[in-house]
Amino acid sequence: MLVSIYRYNPEKDQVPYMEDIEVEIPEGRDLMVLDVLHLVKAKDSSVAYRRSCREGVCGSDGLNMNGKNGLACITPLSDVVKKGKLVIRPLPGLPVIRDLVVDMSMFYKQYEKIKPFLINDTPAPAIERLQTPEEREKLDGLYECILCACCSTACPSFWWNPDKFVGPSGLLQAYRFLADSRDTATQERLADLDDPFSVFRCRGIMNCVNVCPKGLNPTRAIGHIRGMLLQRST
């Protein structure tokens, strides 16, 4: 199979280029894209990419495969390969450090901006803070985010304003804390999101929903935040 990989080594290359590598795919097995990258690296050890858990829970290997963002470790070749060719590029919209490795600091900064931690000023009880199963259910579909950045780097609004627009991933987490019955900072959190960029740059394009490898729905979470902002101001 022909694998075309985005290559860029800042010490050697003036500009990035696509390198075509022929890879032998073992018969009878539907490899994941990450397996293919391992095969490529066995041939050419200089190819750089991130990977860790290889089972879709750590979020290291978010890549753009044949035009669509996803996790290499849980994307089978049968899902992405078109006409016998696999094109692998880094996640779009972030600066490339080398080959398939992008600089994610902008992404993490937006995550940090929404204060991604539980805030509760009341004294902690001797046991856990109680929460009903119904209250807990509100966190389903939110806490599962693995920070792989597939969504935010598929979002045109994030491409244009990565410094100002929190992006789908960060907003999903913002809502995760807004929705948590144990968190008491709802008003402060909402006040922090009420500018023209942080939330309202979402144009409902829904690329985020389309690519999320965990099947989460940031657009819906953003809708909930807008609803809360509306309720608070009217």
């Binding site: 100002k164 999101l193 500018d195 023209p196 960029f197 942080s198 902002l229 509306l230 101001s233």
Partner: peptide, 18 residues
């Protein structure tokens, strides 16, 4: 919070409602 002086309603929600 991103400050923005040239936006119409000065905050995202009012722009959005407008």
């Amino acid at each position: 919070m991103v400050a923005s002086v040239t936006s119409f309603g000065r905050n995202g929600l009012s722009d959005w409602i407008i």
